[in-house]
Design a protein around this nucleic acid. Structure first.
Length: 328
DNA sequence: CGTTTTTGACCGGCGC
DNA sequence: GCGCCGGTCAAAAACG
């Protein structure tokens, strides 16, 4: 609270319009080049994250309409890269808050804005949830304030190492949603475990963890202070379980089977598909799907390695073919 | 009464 | 080394 008051939203106006930089959860302060792909000029990339500038269609060669299966494939390709997948409903090209837009035309655009790649490919992704458990365990073992901390040092170091490793492994996936509701229903059950004031923003950031046992997926939700109607949701990790079917008529039925079936690879495009505006029973009727972004974990430069990074042009082609297939 | 949220404290990373 | 900051913990409160 008090730190909230310290943050003055008027302070330091940012030309990135609040969708980037530190207010943008996937912006990497240490690697500003994330927006500087040669194929994607910085201004466009910047504008791409600000709906007030232009729509994604405008940004991306005059528009792309793609189907979700193809979109999943695109994600599949990009699972080991740091490609940005942007998705939006066409009605969100403007600031209109169109109701029931979820059933309308879906415009999805893919662009690569980062050259970051995940850490060692042979790292054990499957144990992520366990690592989370271990991590919390070691933290719990931590002596409470004022206690002696002799054996603590070791656990701290171990914890630090595993934590760092884990953070580098966990794929992150973020998108912007135009919604009045912060915590959008996505079929999974989440438990809030923290809330922090966001620098330069009057809106706090909430931290959620999947309530399913052994599932270490986390998500962060914050509202853009530049456009309070925009919710920034960042997912970290991959669910190792199905959507709870008991959840208010959601769950598997909420999403189309082909998308679910295409989710065999490591990256949570299944997960992404859950958020695509395809559901007519989406409880958030006035939610406009705006932008999606996949992120790979940060990693030290010296460990960069050759990973299949989809070519930007390839993605463009993909989008173009989507466009052809989708348009009547 | 079990589960979830709230919230202040704590920790580690990082920049200066 | 210090301070800032993002992320997490965990006890207490709130909720259903």
């Amino acid at each position: 609270m008090s730190s909230d008051e310290k943050n003055n939203p008027q302070h330091n106006y940012d030309p990135f319009q609040g969708f980037n930089r530190s207010t943008f959860p996937f912006y990497d302060d240490k690697n500003p080049s994330i927006y500087h792909r040669s194929a994607a000029p910085t201004p466009a990339a910047v504008q791409a994250f600000d709906p007030s500038y232009m729509s994604f269609n405008d940004y991306f060669n005059g528009g792309s309409v793609i189907n979700y299966n193809s979109f999943s494939r695109a994600l599949d390709m990009s699972c080991s890269s740091s490609d940005v997948v942007s998705a939006m409903d066409d009605s969100t090209g403007t600031t209109n808050n169109t109701k029931n837009s979820v059933g309308g035309d879906k415009h999805i655009q893919i662009h690569n804005i980062s050259e970051e790649i995940p850490s060692t490919p042979n790292s054990s992704v499957s144990c992520s949830s366990k690592e989370v458990e271990d991590s919390s365990k070691t933290k719990k073992e931590k002596q409470p304030k004022g206690s002696e901390d002799h054996g603590d040092d070791r656990s701290k170091k171990v914890n630090k190492a595993t934590k760092k490793e884990k953070q580098q492994k966990e794929p992150r996936f973020a998108f912007l949603t135009k919604s009045e509701i912060d915590n959008l229903e996505d079929g999974y059950r989440w438990r809030k475990y923290g809330q922090k004031a966001v620098k330069k923003s009057p809106y706090p950031r909430s931290y959620y963890r999947c309530t399913s046992l052994k599932c270490g997926v986390k998500k962060r939700i914050e509202r853009s202070y530049q456009d309070p109607s925009v919710v920034i949701t960042t997912y970290e990790g991959k669910h190792n379980h199905h959507i709870p079917t008991t959840l208010r008529g959601h769950g598997a039925g909420m999403f189309s089977p082909p998308i679910m079936a295409s989710s065999a690879s490591g990256f949570p495009h299944e997960f992404l598909s859950h958020f695509l505006p395809s559901s007519s029973n989406n409880p958030v009727g006035n939610t406009n799907f705006m932008h999606c972004q996949t992120l790979s974990p940060q990693q030290p430069q010296q460990h960069q390695q050759q990973v299949q990074v989809p070519d930007y042009g390839l993605l463009q082609d993909l989008v173009s073919s989507f466009n052809r297939n989708q348009l009547p």
